[in-house]
Design a protein around this nucleic acid. Structure first.
Length: 812
RNA sequence: GGGCGAGUGGUGGAACUGGUAUACACGACAGACUUAAAAUCUGUUGCCUCUGAGGCUUGCGGGUUCAAGUCCCGCCUCGCCCACCA
């Protein structure tokens, strides 16, 4: 009896698996399974928070293989980006050297943690053979009018000295540096994701993704239905166009507010107000979003002009205030008492308010007694002429129709989704393949000249001026006229790199295009994609956008190549806080692998709780996992030589082992790893009892432990391989087919029937499956404990649920 | 302010379409082995009264039902995402 030595055993099998090419992807899959996990930033701090999603993906891939699938499963590195660049600057290293170092550490860790990756397929997005095709994609988008340049107020991060996407700004602060974001005007490249707003919404119906992710994307796209209303400007022939979702409140609209950047502000401002308005515009221009948000007190100035309410014809003063956003709708709102913000603003500046919607109690508008303000979306109209008594939703239709007949309103749709700003004033990214020529203007780099190589071995300058500004990079020839020209010095957002990487795994060394259509044909669609919920609206939306574009442009057969996504939960550190290096609560995989073995860590993580919920890493609880591995090993590894046979035990062992196989198959298939493991633990406890005290035939024993080893192989690959060899296995356990279970052995022929009185458990008995209701009731009545109780009262009703319970309803 | 989700023992968490609440594990306590400890093994472990036995229990308050952790209504608390989006 030797003790299990995870370190020695795991090292042994790691080597064997590598040498025998166990994880090589089959060339011609008949029954493909493409297991995809979100690749990682090689920023140097791989911790158990990364390992968690990967373990789930690995279990599913190994399981699929045992189910008879040909499996493609690998990983890669999202190698470009700010974290790597910042880390390199901090350490005085070259970004590429730093990245390579991390990649080799992480590759070793991927392997040590037992992942069934095809290590010949690892992708590194910072290599020219990869980013050549990221640039190629940019050119396709450009050719199709989906990439364009525009001068725009952008989010400027003063610490990292770069432009950030809206998605990377959190409450006015930069997601990474935490700096307060400033506004700055620059010429930037955008991808026209807004062209796909509807397609991306509709596509959600065709994919099996968690609702939380779908809802987040719907919310982000933010389609809203409303009306575009024209407000005539007083003493003028012009109109102000206003988008509203609440046209039902138009009869109480008493004033209008414009965003400071609204194009009509200047012409609408009367001379006497000019000074004040201009000053206000300047102030809000310089304000960052944080200040605008934090300033709870709404401020604004009057323009001196009026518009007419198209419904009532009353005059409405036109104000300017920065709580109205220039970039949404028409940058103008009409205001009334039914909006919290509007009414606060009106009170502050003594603007009269009116109301026209009451809460829905009943539809009788004569019951309005007091001045009641309804902030709900839905109410009943009053003070609204012939629309009185309608519900808000009815009124929205009718009022839009009515004003529409006068040419003053129309139904319309708005989105909050903005185009994707992809320019970054950073070094460590894919250069944007564009050349500026004084004669020819903006000229795309011809495809034959790709890649535009990112100059390496550059010292990264702390001033933030990109090394791409060096003359040797900037100065070039115009591809069209051959004259002097300059290269674009911005690089692409790393989300561009990661928006298509999964299309390359099927043939990662393909050099005739970004992806090999033949290989895609073999492997797509992705069978399961696994990753964290934090990517719900960025990566996961960009991935879909890119697929929609590629499909439309004829490069991809489907526009939703990832039909199934599983969202893993997040792992918190031992302190209950989200695991991150900055908080100092990271758990280092190497330490645990050396001490306990990768299997124990895998088991511990997967047993912690529901895979979609994650949980806190609690070192105190870890021992249990490691203990289980030892008991499991001991159970199967040491000899069992029974003297005689007990038939009852024999039958029970058979039944339990076949049930185990069924349970694990069902649970693993739907990523319920925690309950699968619990079932295995129960089985090991039971089998240990049999081994210690029981007597069963060697054949049954061997069948039982083989089933255990095989069905646990996806979860704890090392110890199962070792045990499989002990049991006399010739080939790797990971090449075996999933064990078959006998349907007869997993169905019980007896069942425990619960006896209740008034719904409360009082007793129970065992009966054969399928026993008739009358018989069950008769047995239940015959039980002493029950008899005593029911005699005390009068039986009103008896409920019998076949194979489950008998419930006596009595009156006492 | 909006959206989504969650509240179950000392702890992490189980519980299929309403049908035995607390599986599995951690911790704790007791015992065996040991000179001793660690490791391992065995037993106990939701709470309350307790001799047997009985009563109570899934954040709080109602409701539907023979039966509610699960369904409905109203609250409270926490988490995540979004947010002066008209």
């Amino acid at each position: 009896m030797s003790k299990y030595e995870p370190k020695i055993v795991e090292e042994k099998w790691r080597k064997v698996w590598r040498e025998t090419g166990l994880y090589k992807t089959p060339e011609n899959p008949k029954n493909p399974y493409y297991g995809l996990v979100m690749f990682a930033y090689p920023s140097g701090d791989l911790h158990c928070g990364h390992w968690y999603p990967y373990t789930g993906g690995d279990i599913l891939a190994r399981f699929a293989r045992m189910q008879g699938h040909d499996v493609l499963h690998t990983n890669g590195f999202d190698a470009f980006g700010l974290p790597a660049e910042n880390a390199a600057i901090k350490r005085g290293l070259m970004a590429d050297v730093w990245t390579e170092e991390n990649i080799s550490t992480m590759t070793r860790q991927y392997e040590a943690t037992g992942n069934m990756y095809d290590y010949d397929r690892l992708i590194n997005t910072s290599k020219p053979e990869y980013y050549k095709w990221t640039q190629w994609l940019f050119l396709q988008l450009y050719k199709n009018g989906k990439a364009y340049q525009k001068e725009a107020l952008v989010n400027w991060d003063p610490v990292d000295k770069t432009v950030l996407a809206n998605e990377q700004v959190i409450n006015g602060r930069a997601e990474r540096s935490g700096a307060e974001v400033e506004k700055k005007s620059l010429k930037q490249w955008f991808f026209k994701i807004t062209d796909y707003a509807d397609a991306l919404l509709e596509g959600l119906d065709n994919i099996e993704w968690p609702n939380r992710i779908k809802d987040a994307q719907k919310n982000w796209i933010g389609k809203s239905h409303g009306s575009l209303v024209k407000f005539p400007i007083k003493d003028s022939n012009d109109f102000l166009e206003i988008y509203t979702t609440r046209i039902d409140t138009i009869y109480s609209g008493t004033f209008i507010v414009l965003a400071p950047e609204h194009e009509l502000v200047t012409s609408l401002t009367v001379d006497s107000q000019k000074q004040e308005v201009v000053k206000y515009q300047e102030i809000s221009q310089s304000k960052t979003d944080t200040v605008r948000l934090e300033g709870k007190d709404k401020s604004g100035v009057f323009t001196g002009s009026y518009a007419l309410n198209p419904a009532t014809n009353e005059s409405m003063p036109i104000w300017v205030a920065d709580f109205v956003l220039g970039g949404y709708g028409t940058g103008a709102v009409f205001a009334d008492a039914h909006d919290q913000r509007d009414s606060e603003f009106a009170k502050k500046y003594n603007i009269p308010l009116k109301t026209s919607v009451k809460p829905v109690d009943d539809r009788d508008i004569s019951k309005i007694e007091s001045f009641e303000i309804c902030f709900e979306d839905d109410g009943i109209l009053y003070n609204s002429e012939h629309f009185d008594g309608l519900t808000s939703s009815e009124a929205r239709e009718k009022i839009t129709e009515y004003l529409g007949s006068k040419g003053l309103a129309q139904k319309t749709t708005q989105y909050r989704l903005r185009d994707w700003l992809i320019s970054r004033q950073r070094y460590w990214g894919s250069p944007i393949p564009i050349i500026y020529c004084e004669k020819c203007g903006t000229v795309p780099v011809p495809e034959k000249d790709l890649p535009v190589v990112l100059p390496l071995a550059q010292k990264i300058d702390k001033s933030g001026k990109s090394p791409l500004y060096r003359d040797s990079f900037i100065n070039t020839e115009c591809p069209e006229c051959g004259g002097q020209a300059k290269r674009e010095t911005d690089t692409m957002d790393t989300f561009v790199d990661s928006s298509w990487y999964y299309l390359r795994y099927p043939n990662p060394h393909y050099d005739k295009g970004p992806f090999d259509p033949e290989a895609l044909n073999k492997w797509l669609p992705v069978s399961t994609y696994i990753g964290g919920p934090e990517h719900a609206t960025m990566h996961l939306l960009y991935v879909r956008f890119m697929a929609h574009f590629l499909n439309e442009a004829g490069f991809l057969e489907t526009n939703e190549p990832i039909p199934r996504f599983i969202c893993n939960g997040l792992i918190d550190g031992p302190d209950g806080q989200k695991m991150s290096k900055s908080r100092g609560n990271v758990v280092d995989p190497d330490e645990y692998v050396n001490k306990y073995g990768a299997d124990s860590v895998r088991l511990y993580m997967m047993f912690m709780g529901s895979y979609t919920d994650g949980g806190p890493w609690d070192p105190a609880r870890f021992e249990g996992a490691s203990r289980f591995i030892s008991r499991f090993y001991e159970l199967v590894h040491s000899d069992y030589k029974p003297q005689e046979i007990n038939t009852i035990q024999e039958v029970e062992l058979q039944s339990r082992s076949h049930k185990l196989v069924k349970k694990l198959k069902e649970d693993i298939a739907v990523a319920k790893f925690n309950t699968a493991i619990a079932a295995a633990m129960e089985f090991v406890n039971f089998a240990s009892q049999i081994k210690r005290y029981g007597v069963v035939s060697e054949a049954s024993w061997k069948e039982a432990v083989s089933m255990l080893v095989l069905s646990m192989a996806p979860i704890t690959p090392y110890v199962c391989e070792e045990l499989w060899q002990t049991l006399g296995g010739q080939e790797s356990v990971h090449k075996q087919a999933w064990p078959r279970y006998d349907e007869k052995l997993v169905t019980d022929d007896v069942v425990t029937i619960v006896v209740q009185v008034n719904g409360k458990l009082k007793n129970e008995f065992v009966a054969e499956i399928g026993t008739a209701n009358e018989e069950l009731e008769k047995i239940a009545r015959g039980l002493d404990a029950i008899n005593k109780i029911i005699q005390k009262g009068e039986i009103i009703k008896v409920v019998v649920v076949p194979n489950r319970l008998v419930n006596f309803v009595i009156k006492q």
